[in-house]
Simulated assay, not measured.
Amino acid sequence: MKVVVTGGGTGGHIYPALALVKEIQRLEPGSEFIYIGTENGLESDIVPRSGIRFETINISGFQRKLTWKNIRTIWRFWRGTARAKQIMKGFGADIVIGTGGYVAGPVVFAASKLDIPSLIHEQNSVPGLTNKFLSRYVDKVAVSFEDSAAYFPAEKVRYTGNPRASEVTGERPRSPLQELGLEENKKTVVVVGGSRGARPINEAFLDSLPEAANRNWQYLYVTGSAHYDKVIEEVERAGNPGNVVIHPFIHNMPAVLSYADLLISRAGATTLAEITALGLPSILIPSPYVTNNHQEKNAKSLSSKGAAVVRTENEWNAEVLLQDSDRILSDDAKWQKMHEAALTLAAPGAAEKIFRLMEDMMKPPRLEEEGK
């Protein structure tokens, strides 16, 4: 099976794609892959690390207001479509999978024009512009939240869950805590603002350091590369608390989360897929800067079941961070209830479900009449 995969811009689009690649490799050994992304996107760093052939096109996203930049984007779209067609023809692609982000637009569109079977995966409860556009051209649409099915053609939609969850539900990996500078037998709070960091989460945690230093648990603080240097300076001013470890980025987050006791983060769909698969209690601060406020809708799907505490940016500060963390980590019964609630929201086997969809899409059409 020769598979073209595309998706980029954020880890939320990239990691599900890579999880799906791993599952295809397991179920269909000998499969070949090309991942098409952008040269400057996060995928240009993450994908080559996985050993997958990586190709690029030049594309930018549409602006939501009238601007000459959209003319440039349209021109790049058609250039990107032509380049994607060239790559697919040379590769002999059997199927094309898109996981979102504007780079997926011309790639999946090109597949439809070449009559190559195609599928998109939507991670969020409210889909982005690219997947809404592509749903008219693809054969199937896989969704992570049942609510998002309403945005797509009903006959194409299949509920699968998020493939990223498949990576955290297998055999528990070796603990990475010591390698990261943490203790093995201490409750661990992971604080992360996403692949590019989130200023409100960073600022609240920095303000909490004098009190956090006195807690009986330890903190792994993943700043995002954009904020790392500033955060290190602030932590040094606070006296480098012994129970706080700082990293700009974690490439194997599922392994870290499998040894964590609490996550404080944004509410990206991939993150929620990981923590529900693990049953990890969380404090979620949805980003208000995303399309249709989809992170808040994502987060409420957990808080409504008692699996997470949700805080808006306006109410989020150091005091709230400490109070919420204390309530969860100081009360074993509360932690257990949140753990069990999170597990009920998990969608196991998502990557395999998508693979089976792919198999069905690639079967030759049944002839209805004998001899036809």
Rank of each mutant, 00 (worst) to 15 (best):
A142C: 06
T160K: 05
A19T: 02
Q86K: 10
E184Y: 03
N70M: 13
L20S: 08
A341P: 08
L322C: 06
V290H: 11
R196A: 05
V290F: 13
H251G: 13
L134V: 08
K372G: 01
L345A: 05
A149K: 11
G268S: 08
I71V: 12
E352T: 04
R266Q: 04
Y102C: 04
A226D: 12
N314V: 07
R53N: 01
A111C: 10
K372L: 11
V320Y: 09
A110M: 12
T291H: 14
W335F: 13
V309N: 02
P254Y: 00
S304M: 04
S325F: 09
K2S: 02
K297H: 11
A226H: 03
D45N: 05
R26N: 14
G181N: 05
P281D: 07
Q295N: 01
V290R: 08
G11V: 02
A213F: 14
L220V: 14
S135E: 06
I250C: 05
G279Y: 15
E183S: 06
E359G: 07
N298L: 01
Y137V: 06
R215W: 05
R72Q: 06
N243V: 14
R174L: 14
V309E: 01
G100P: 02
G90K: 11
A347G: 00
V126I: 09
G92D: 09
R76A: 10
V189L: 03
P288C: 07
D261Y: 11
V5K: 01
R311V: 00
A307S: 10
K132Q: 08
A299F: 00
F355D: 02
P29M: 12
Y228L: 02
L262P: 08
L18H: 07
N58P: 00
I283R: 07
A273M: 00
L345H: 01
A212F: 05
G92A: 08
S144A: 01
D324R: 09
D147P: 01
A150W: 14
G92T: 11
S301T: 04
H294I: 00
A307Y: 02
I34T: 08
E340V: 15
I36D: 03
A104I: 09
E39I: 03
E171C: 06
A150S: 13
L209Q: 12
